[in-house]
Amino acid sequence: MTLLITVFAAVTVTIIWYKNAPDTSMQLGTLSLMFWGASIMWFVDAVVGYMEEGASFFMQDAAEMLNDLYLGLSVVALGLIIWLVILMIKDPHRVIRSLITGTNRQ
């Protein structure tokens, strides 16, 4: 479930990044690479889990699935927060800088 949610997040962000290309000011490429990196890593984790447990790896009870769903959503939220911090630090449209210095954006 966590892998699925992260893959959906990665695909969605990649589509938005592609639609906005070549404008890279919103750092969407960074966000999509973060989600793709996590998706690849959870995929390997799933393959190792399948090799160890076999088909029972996919048979989760409702409580486990619900926990994985919360985890997946929390992971996406954390990824978005990290991206937001990067965006605020880089401040491509100089919004934060102009707020702090009190100057108007040109």
Partner: peptide
């Protein structure tokens, strides 16, 4: 990819 994946 490495930092993002590792952090998550």
């Amino acid at each position: 990819m490495l930092w993002g994946g590792s952090a998550l």
